[in-house]
Write a protein that binds this DNA or RNA. Sequence first.
DNA 1: CGTTCTTACCGTCTTCTGGTGTTATGTTAT
DNA 2: ATAACATAACACCAGAAGACGGTAAGAACG
Lengths: 266, 266
Amino acid sequence: MTTDVDGDTTELSRPARRQAEIAAYVVKHGSVSANDLVEAFGVSVMTVHRDLDELERQGVVRKYRGGVSAQPTSVFESNVAYRLNTAHAEKAAIARHARTMIEPGMSVMLDDSTSALALVDLFEDITPLTVATNFLPAITKLAQLRDITLLALGGIYSATHDSFGGMPCAEAVEALHTDLLFCSVSAVSATHAFHQEEEIVLVKRAMLRSARTKVLLVDHAKLQRTALHRLAPLTDFDVVIVDEKTPKTLIDPLRDHGATVEVAKI
Amino acid sequence: MTTDVDGDTTELSRPARRQAEIAAYVVKHGSVSANDLVEAFGVSVMTVHRDLDELERQGVVRKYRGGVSAQPTSVFESNVAYRLNTAHAEKAAIARHARTMIEPGMSVMLDDSTSALALVDLFEDITPLTVATNFLPAITKLAQLRDITLLALGGIYSATHDSFGGMPCAEAVEALHTDLLFCSVSAVSATHAFHQEEEIVLVKRAMLRSARTKVLLVDHAKLQRTALHRLAPLTDFDVVIVDEKTPKTLIDPLRDHGATVEVAKI
DNA sequence: CGTTCTTACCGTCTTCTGGTGTTATGTTAT
DNA sequence: ATAACATAACACCAGAAGACGGTAAGAACG
């Protein structure tokens, strides 16, 4: 199988990668047996089962005796799109660009996106800093850093996103007001940002209300997709940052509709 | 140096262990130079500095040119007591005992204590379960488990406790009401539970208000200590669980004052 | 201005955990 | 009852991350 829109194959642990591929395989075939997967991926039955367990834990597939089947696309999409997500260099570039907007002493809010995670790696040098996020990997990283006030946004854990959400999270967000918000979405049209899942939209909307300056991080893959729920018009964001690989033909429409778009150089 | 009240030396990575010992050393001597520590522990200057940096990050010592000094005891106590904390077998026994109080489907709240952490390891078999906690290691573990609804209690991260606290956390707690609460404290007298730090007390009090059945987990070391802030009378707890090593002479007074004490068998 | 202490960087070593297969045991369907 | 499938329990291997020291550059103190 060739999957992959553009190059950049690695940057994901082998099992994680295989799991994402298995997920794609399952969705493609609707439902498959463990043995099918053994042949297709050249690993042992045991490993297949372990992978499937993990995918089930994340809510991507459903196991039953004799095989697995795919879950409703919404869940799958946002997960696998996210896991197979590469574009590492672009993400890093976007993060570096975003970083220039941050001054020591500021308060920053991050959502549960890999783009935001790339940004976290740059925080060490912008201290002191207050960071609020509901994204577990980000929380774990930030907890290690000195001179960073970490404000964890709690809530109901979602294995699919590895983050916290739901009403408790929205409430936690509403109790805050930060200088900056960096967030991402699953899809971007000429006029609006979209997201697959309603509960996530809830939290992101709350975040948008709780920050002075709002920044949308968009890698070029997002611009060609669509998603179910309309999150907000792009004009709600003070800045939209895209990566260099984004074709001009996709950027121009955004600007025509009033968005402030900045291009991050690699 | 001999430290160590009772056997059980390991169960802590080498650097972590040395750091705890260094912390103890610093407290004992009030303030020491890096070179002193080099001799005392037989490691390089570099390593000493790294250890001290870590301890400073946790708020246990204060670095200045020429050496380090201990922080106010309150901070130290709750940290090092915690890190040097062994009594592994006892903790496990207490956890196993506590476990019998939990039925599938219940909602459980945990505070930031190693006792609670031991309990987490037993949750895998009591599913489904809803667990709320502000303790980062517990959150990380629970996020891996299936059939557990994890409710993270967010707030301001404290490196000393590796948990979240402050007003945001207290508010998150107040929005809940669980069937059970398992918590621990730094010290227990015949009549009351105590804790070193005020902010922590704030959260624990909120937790006590937000649970139907309240359980206090006490390993025998706690019964001989004292601490600054009075958290609550022991009669506020429905059950107090102590380990087998606790001398009868310490248990009886608790019972005389009306507490329900149960002894966990190893 | 020099001494002392601290940090930054690099290379090496070790430790450890994650990933995997194999075999054995358990479970469900036919 | 038996075959197919799933889980559990070891044991192995490798890659990665951590721990550590040394040296050199930097900063603070006298």
